[in-house]
């Protein structure tokens, strides 16, 4: 990657780290939330569904500000994390949190569709064969929604790679710390003569996005083929 300067390369590496962490940690939570929304009926179901989708409809700067308030030293959660030395403020983990929160609704949507496509009668059949609820989930439900999980993961990863508004609001734009790929492009475009470097990062950005889509497509096809072959 000699065509990228060290600072540019730093932004790419940071973005990959942020997006990977955001989608890896977000995925299990998204699976749980998707299961809850797809399979359970309870008071407040509609409210929870709407709340999950909030980051999708709120202006990202608002989401960023809400994160800032939640993780500020004066707030309970932020204060606690600060005391144990794990405050995400102005730290790459904060960028990962912002990216994860923004990607969450997309992951939940894709996985929820997967849950809704699973025939509940198959799970019922597994019960009659002696499998407990948890075993049914691991051995029947999860393998059947694998294509949905892969799609959700890829979508979440791509969204996390591109997250801008909430990240810059929450953790600012510190090179090497919180300056992800989109933030670096933004900064380069603010200075005269930065267009060439910005174009290189734009190209890099496109390559990563296309790569993620292709890999998820291959994985999803493989998972689908197992059901049909």
């Amino acid at each position: 990657m000699s065509w990228l300067g060290p600072e540019e390369w730093q932004a790419v590496a940071l973005s990959l780290r942020v997006a990977t962490v955001a989608s890896l940690f977000g995925l299990p939570l998204a699976i749980g939330m998707a299961w809850l929304l797809a399979r359970k009926r309870f008071p407040g179901h509609g409210l929870l569904s709407a709340a999950t989708h909030l980051p999708l409809v709120l202006p990202p700067v608002v989401t960023g500000h809400l994160l800032l308030m939640t993780f500020s030293r004066n707030a309970p959660l932020g204060g606690f994390l600060d005391r144990i030395g794990m405050s995400p403020a102005f730290h790459w983990t904060g960028a990962a949190i912002a990216a994860g929160v923004m990607a969450f609704p997309l992951m939940v949507r894709a996985i929820r569709l997967g849950f809704e496509a699973v025939d509940p009668r198959l799970e019922q059949t597994a019960l009659t064969l002696g499998a407990g609820r948890l075993s049914v989930f691991w051995t029947v439900t999860l393998p059947l929604i694998l294509p949905g999980i892969i799609a959700g993961g890829a979508l979440g990863f791509a969204k996390a790679m591109g997250e801008f508004g909430a990240t810059i609001t929450f953790v600012a734009n510190i090179p090497g710390q919180t300056q992800t790929l989109p933030l670096a492009i933004f900064s380069l475009l603010q200075v005269p003569g930065g267009e060439t470097a910005a174009s290189r990062l734009v190209l890099m950005s496109i390559l990563i996005a296309v790569g993620a889509v292709i890999i998820s497509e291959i994985l999803a096809r493989r998972a689908q083929a197992r059901l049909l072959a």
Binding site: L129, G130, G132, V140, R226
Partner: peptide, 29 residues
């Protein structure tokens, strides 16, 4: 619950697990 009744059930539609081979389906229970 159904899984503790030890009652096998053959449904009208076979309801095989699509992600498993026939052998894995047979050995599931």
């Amino acid at each position: 619950p159904p899984n503790r009744r030890r009652i096998g059930y053959v449904f009208q539609d076979a309801r095989l697990f699509p992600h498993m081979t026939v052998a894995k389906n047979l050995d599931y229970g």
